[in-house]
Amino acid sequence: MTVPVRHPEVDQYLRALDDAVRPLPRRERDELVMQVTEHIHAALPPQPTGADVRNVLDGLGSPADIAAAAGVKARTVRRGAREAFALVLLVTGLPPLIGWVVGLGLLLWSPLWSARQKLLGALVWPGGWFFAFVFGLLLPTGAGSTISCVSSAGQFAASCTTTHSGPPAWMPALIVAALFLAPIFVAAYLWREAGRRSATYELAATP
């Protein structure tokens, strides 16, 4: 047996191919992916460099090209309601918990974001504004300061009184600003990326 080449770019390529040929019957799809996998293994030297891998993948053509040759009509996926809802729910995290979880589901579902972008969207911030808000309330403001909060269960409205004696007053303000602004920036970035990606898909539709 040849030693299967494990390389992140190869894995990514094969996943993209598998995705692109999804409309094909199961057997045909498996065979095609297997043949391309074997091609890559046969074409690569035992210790491939990054350039070796790229040359082989470039020689194969894009997953969309191969899918088109197999008779798959390229899908046109445009940025739309799914992407908008995903970002709004992720940013606000409302309704508490459910909102963010649904937003995460939409984020993962959309084909317009890469794995890395999805990870970014999921990590900034888990729970969205709602959790950022709760976290902001719980911020330690250093020794000697006390925060007392009154919040009614199930609601995110709360009133707090803080007694300062430790860190400068702008510190918590800065952290709270970061907590609220970061999701906005991430969402803006993801929105733009989704738009760019949908354009690529449209190009792929007209070979």
């Binding site: 091609h39 194969l60 053509g61 191969i66």
Partner: peptide, 8 residues
């Protein structure tokens, strides 16, 4: 131009 298209 794209070797992969020969498999289909």
């Amino acid at each position: 131009t794209a070797e992969g298209t020969l498999y289909p």
